[in-house]
Simulated scan of single mutants.
Amino acid sequence: MVQTLTISARAKINLTLDVLGKRPDGYHEVAMIMQTLELADLVHLRQADSILIETDNPRLPGDESNLAYRAAALLRRECGVDHGVHIRLEKKIPMAAGLAGGSSDAAAVLKGLVQLWKLPLTPEDLSRLGASLGSDVPFCLYGGTALATGRGEVITQLQDLPSRPVVLAKPPVDVATASVYKGYRPEAVVVHPDTQSVLTAISQGNWHKVEQSLVNVLESVTVNEHPQIAIIKAMMLNAGATGSLMSGSGPTVFCLAENDDTAQQIAQRLTQECKAEVIVTRTSQRETK
């Protein structure tokens, strides 16, 4: 029996994010085109008698409030497993950043424990369980390029886009997703994404059309509270980015670059001219296995 396992928990960005209305259950109905990145946390799993969690970031709790812990506890309860796991999180994804770091860690725990505990669960089973942990967890289980609808948990996998360099810039503020959605006002949105047009562009492998169509309606909330987001977007475009957008509820801003040299030039300028954590990465295609 496998005793240890390491899973990559990849970050995500939103190529589009639209809010369609309020649902009877209190959540918002959304339509989001999401994309995984090569940037990833490492989730190390080891057989244990109980569920234990260890992190290398003192800001991240190592108790039952951690989403990775909750993922293990959920799987243990649902499947009647009588042993546990030691989870060690090696964090690379910035926290509270709109990059799904916590959700991706939880998804990695779910996928890893299916192997470690030899559980007869299908991807659909895991997606259903993941949705009870958080709306981004099902997408993080699948990865690649996908349309997320419902409250974000209904995933339609799309054709993988070609790999492109991505520059991330997270200003020194944290944003709570629930607070952003609570502050969302439809009348404050000037432009909504043309989701169908972007889906067509993805089916054609047309990155140029995609990068011209980046829209996130939650910018109407988060940019008002943190104007540096708009400044970073403008800096990226002035430095040669082909498209720039806030990811998720923010505050991280990403941009797409034509090539690695341009991405490095953009990152260098951002590092010199603004207070932000800057990371250069690439888009990532869906894992085949």
Rank of each mutant, 00 (worst) to 15 (best):
M1L: 12
L5I: 12
T6V: 15
T6P: 05
I7Y: 05
S8M: 12
S8E: 14
S8Q: 15
R10V: 13
K12A: 06
G21K: 09
G26L: 11
E29F: 05
E29S: 15
V30Y: 06
Q35C: 10
Q35D: 08
V43L: 12
V43K: 12
Q47H: 09
Q47P: 00
A48F: 03
I51G: 05
L52I: 03
L52D: 04
I53V: 14
I53Y: 03
I53N: 02
I53C: 09
D56W: 08
N57T: 07
L60K: 04
P61N: 03
D63P: 03
E64N: 07
S65G: 05
S65T: 15
L67D: 07
A68P: 10
Y69Q: 01
A71C: 08
A72Y: 04
L74E: 10
L75T: 04
C79P: 00
C79I: 00
G80P: 08
D82L: 09
D82Y: 00
G84E: 07
V85N: 09
I87L: 11
I87A: 02
R88I: 05
L89K: 02
E90R: 12
I93G: 08
P94W: 09
G98L: 09
S104C: 10
A107P: 08
A108K: 08
G112C: 13
L113Y: 11
L113I: 11
L113G: 10
Q115Y: 08
W117Y: 11
P120I: 09
L126M: 12
S127R: 13
L129V: 01
G130Q: 08
A131C: 07
A131I: 06
L133H: 03
L133Y: 02
L133M: 08
G134I: 02
G134M: 05
S135Q: 07
D136T: 05
V137T: 04
G143N: 09
G144R: 10
T145H: 06
A146D: 04
R151M: 07
R151H: 11
E153V: 11
I155W: 10
T156M: 06
Q157M: 11
Q159H: 15
D160P: 10
R164P: 00
V167K: 06
P171K: 03
D174P: 00
S179F: 05
S179H: 13
Y181W: 07
Y181T: 10
K182L: 10
K182G: 14
V191T: 11
H192M: 01
D194Q: 14
Q196Y: 00
L199M: 13
T200E: 12
A201D: 02
W207S: 14
W207I: 13
H208S: 15
K209E: 15
S213A: 14
L214G: 09
V217F: 00
E219P: 01
E219V: 02
V223S: 08
N224I: 00
E225T: 08
E225P: 00
P227W: 01
A234T: 12
A239M: 01
A239Y: 02
G240C: 07
A241E: 03
T242F: 00
T242D: 04
T242S: 11
T242Q: 14
S247Q: 06
S247H: 03
P251A: 07
C255H: 04
D260S: 13
Q265V: 11
I266F: 09
I266S: 04
A267R: 07
Q268I: 00
K275R: 12
V278G: 04
V278P: 03
T281F: 10
R282L: 01
R282Q: 11
T283N: 09
S284D: 04
E287W: 07
T288P: 00
K289A: 12
K289Q: 13
K289E: 13
K289C: 06
